[in-house]
Design a protein around this nucleic acid. Structure first.
Lengths: 361, 361
DNA sequence: AACAATCTGGGATACGGTTCCCCCACTCTC
DNA sequence: GAGAGTGGGGGAACCGTATCCCAGATTGTT
């Protein structure tokens, strides 16, 4: 007999439908469902019965408009494929779920245009935070861009979290969750050097990526520490994929075949490198040692199992979420500039079976 | 001078703020922004300037409450880690983005409780569709559960899409995007048989999972076609992970060491199996051949590169999204029971280097 | 020149909840 | 037995946007 809905659309039940059918007021239904107001047992039972009968769920949009609502985190990533990402995402998602938060995912595909669009989209959604994953590009313009995002989100009551990227310069309202990228590379290279390797082929990754730069820098520092001359001719930049690993080793085998170890910027790159070595009839690690970075599952699935640097991806995800959750609860208590907006997690070498001393010491 | 907002909260600008500041009505601002109503050039310019000045973005919740709004797809998955998922997700997300849709992701962690909670959460969000990924459990209760989800979502104007699962029985409002699971296994096993293998260790996966059942069934059919006796003693169930692959081969090597090939239910399982064989001093494929299923990147990163069954995961994701998008646009035109609610994509064997005829004919 | 037709912009209402404010009924106390 | 106190429920104002329905302005027609 309702005047409101004449059509028989497949429209979902509203709180009014529930109230009407239960013979109570809309306010009461809301109270029963949110449970933050004393309600008689009788009323609760009556309402809940109707809720079940109608299979009613509250409209999240209406709820969040009215003030309540589930906090949401947005995860933005270049490429959703890629194990490292998956683990961070798992960490974020898991921690979010634990708190009853929701998580959105978006892929940028390395397109700045799209990245901008996504950040705005997330802003529209009123997300509690935007988590940006992956290495940053070392452009000035990039810094400015991120700073703008950070301020823009901040002004909208949201927050930017950078994961696995270097922190932004200046007084920018953003949180960074980082890992000791350079330190890991230093340790990894040291491991190789202390095994006796002197000529090491280095495949840092894309030259413009900050992670690649950091990894190269760490390796370089290790060479210095060991007093071993560093040969820039043994460094081959390129994308973080197995094809590059394969191609780089193939070329190096032709140009500078005297290397006894490969320091790959990523486990995936290492996998490619390993194949190229095998294809050339070289044994791993007997003839050439090889190490990776990231410690994704692939590392222990290869034969020999890959010695690599463990990066606590999943934990980074959890930490990132905790950071924004704390900040949100801390609310007025926290000021910008408070400590805790740059967190660095440790890395460590995982020794497996892909390293041996060079053939003839 | 506004009476509405006294506090200086970091509250985002509303459409009213824009209207006020631009000296126009709220309706006009809305029109300029949605662009579906004729507006004078002058007004547009004035409004857009204020929008930029205030860095205003529309409130997605309010917008979708009022009728407009971006359609959203929810992707529900057991474990966000796992390459197969990642590719489906990529497909869904990519296709969604292409249409300006949004995608949400949730993980169930194999917990039925949590699955229910998530489906309800998505229902609250008013998502256009819920995409459920991964093999189904072969319980009756499970069928009922899914049917309930399907109807519940349907009643709320949403839609359930099952990807990589068998379709639901009966007249249930759900779409299924499936691949020829059994056919792929049939072809894969045939490949092994035609290479001369007769004793094949089969690691189908978890016995309760429909994908594992299908893969086993396909293999079995191949044995029949070739007139080769099928030995159930060579079948070892277990989880879809490398540890199981390793352990299963290790045991089999002790119990029934006469097998000459391993048919793994998954590339990851194959990776584990390969390691166990190597650990036992066996060469792959010289002593024992091995094949996988899924054709994830890992397959071509192993040495030797793995012969496996290609499953068009990413395309399945795209197809799934297209299905719901079409249905949504088709709107009143489509009836339930229309064709197109069960799509099956093909699989095929990818021959690489992990299969050779058995050692001695 | 008067009137009709076409554009543009504004006012008001609806979307589905949450929550503030107020009132009623019932018990407890003096 | 009457007044005060308390607990539970209803009415209504808002949250921020889209859109329906009109009115004023502008242009074109006879």
């Amino acid at each position: 007999m309702s005047q409101r809905k004449t059509s028989g659309d497949p429209a979902r039940a509203t709180i009014r439908d529930v109230a009407e059918r239960a013979g109570v007021s809309v306010a009461s239904v809301s109270r029963v469902l949110s449970g933050n107001y004393p309600v008689s047992e009788d009323l609760r039972r009556r309402v809940m019965k109707v809720v079940r009968d109608l299979d009613y769920v509250t409209n999240a949009h209406a709820r969040s408009l009215a003030g309540g609502g589930t906090p949401t985190v947005a995860i933005l990533i270049n490429n959703i494929t890629g194990a490292a990402f998956a683990h961070v995402a798992k960490g974020v998602e898991g921690a979010a779920t634990l708190r009853g938060w929701l998580s959105l995912v978006g892929t940028t595909g390395d397109d700045p245009e799209r990245e901008l669009a996504l950040v705005n989209l997330m802003r529209q959604q009123g997300v509690a935070a935007v988590v940006l994953l992956g290495g940053a590009y070392d452009y000035d313009e990039y810094q400015l861009r991120m700073a703008r995002f950070a301020r823009s989100l901040d002004a909208a009551g949201s927050h930017l979290v950078l994961v696995g990227r270097p922190p932004l310069e200046g007084d920018v309202p953003a949180t960074t969750v980082d890992y000791d990228n350079e330190g890991g590379a230093y340790a990894m290279a040291s491991h190789l050097l202390s095994a006796g390797h002197r000529r090491v082929l280095i495949l840092p990754g894309p030259a413009e990526l900050t992670t690649a730069q950091g990894r190269l820098k760490g390796a370089r520092r290790a060479f210095e520490s060991y007093g071993v001359p560093f040969d820039p001719g043994l460094v081959r930049y390129g994308p973080y994929d197995d094809e590059h690993g394969y191609a780089a080793v193939e070329t190096a085998l032709h140009d500078t075949p005297d290397f006894t170890a490969v320091l790959a910027g990523t486990d995936v790159v290492a996998a490619g490198a390993m194949q190229a070595l095998r294809a050339a009839g070289l044994r791993v690690p007997d003839d050439v040692s090889i190490v990776g970075y990231d410690d994704i599952p692939l590392a222990s699935q290869l034969t020999p199992q890959l010695t690599t640097v463990h990066v606590p991806y999943e934990e980074m995800g959890r930490v990132a979420l905790r950071a924004v959750a704390d900040r949100r609860e801390g609310g007025a208590g926290r000021r910008k500039g408070a400590d805790g907006d740059h967190l660095i997690l440790g890395t460590h070498v995982v020794v497996r079976n892909s390293v041996q001393p060079p053939p003839r010491g």
